[in-house]
């Protein structure tokens, strides 16, 4: 198969970028999108040009590294598929394909198709965890988790942190990412003690990183390679309202002595 690629090239964070055209020829329909990019990069290298930088690692749709806006769609046209699992048989022979980085204010471009997604890590650091220091845990079967709660938690926990939700969102909101973690932990009995504290801290940090607000366009759940539902955002909003209404002041002095 043959393709014409129009790819965003940008040397560094502060420099202007532009779309550059490349030919990808003799590509197997069984090749993945990233393997097609590999072939193009091999040819660029042999011509003495700099290959196109893009993030990738596991190439089986679980690490969340790969991140390409393909023909204006985060991770391309297929549902529930990360870029690395998109195969060239999904495109028409001879097609022109546009390839761009995520375009979100909170994800500055590092180079070409690589962006800085560390804002997502900082949202987790703000509260996306259960405080459970190593060593003090009770027997695992002492905590009963109804199967339906475990399944809902797992659906939300499947998030790979790729940032496609924010890239697809007209507001540049990472609400689906934030809500997925909040839902995962709030569905479980272990997550209850910090439930309200967590939602307040994470939502505040999401906004502080410069992500936009959610206005329920629903683009995020279509782009999500793990098909996480926008219902998680409703869950987050509900918890956020309860948390702000029920908020109790934390006092540092309790328990010392």
């Amino acid at each position: 198969m043959n393709f014409t690629l129009r790819v965003w090239r940008q040397a560094g964070p502060g420099t202007p970028g532009k779309m550059v055209e490349y030919k990808a020829t003799g590509i197997s329909p069984e090749a993945s999108f990233l393997e097609m990019m590999d072939v193009v990069n091999e040819q660029l290298t042999l011509k003495g040009e700099e290959p196109i930088a893009f993030d990738h690692d596991c190439r089986e749709g679980i690490c969340g590294s790969c991140a390409m806006m393909i023909d204006g769609m985060a991770h391309g046209p297929n549902k529930g598929t990360a870029t690395c699992q998109l195969h060239m048989r999904s495109f028409a022979d001879g097609a022109t394909i546009l390839v761009e980085p995520w375009r979100v204010r909170a994800f500055p471009v590092v180079k070409d198709l690589c962006v800085d997604r560390s804002a997502l890590d900082r949202i987790i650091a703000a509260g996306g965890f259960i405080t459970a220091a190593t060593g003090g845990a009770r027997d695992a079967n002492d905590i009963l988790v109804p199967k339906v709660a475990a399944d809902l938690a797992m659906d939300a926990a499947a998030c790979i942190g790729c940032g496609a939700c924010a890239a697809a969102c007209p507001n540049g909101s990472a609400s689906l990412f934030t809500a997925a973690k909040i839902t995962h932990l709030a569905e479980l009995p272990q997550g209850q003690p910090e439930r309200f504290r967590r939602v307040i801290a994470m939502v505040a940090h999401h906004d502080a990183e410069g992500f936009g607000g959610c206005t329920f366009h629903g683009e995020c759940q279509i782009a999500c390679p793990k098909e996480i539902s926008i219902d998680t955002i409703a869950h987050m909003n509900r918890d956020y309202m309860s948390a702000t209404a029920a908020s109790r002041e934390e006092k540092a002095a309790g328990g010392t002595g």
Binding site: A137, A140, V145, K147, G191
Partner: peptide, 22 residues
């Protein structure tokens, strides 16, 4: 044995039976 306890305490959503056990 301790690892499973620790992971459950952290909220790892292991598969469960209907009665809530692992």
């Amino acid at each position: 044995v301790n690892i499973i306890d620790q992971c459950v305490a952290q909220g790892v959503p292991f598969a469960r039976e209907y009665g809530g056990l692992l």
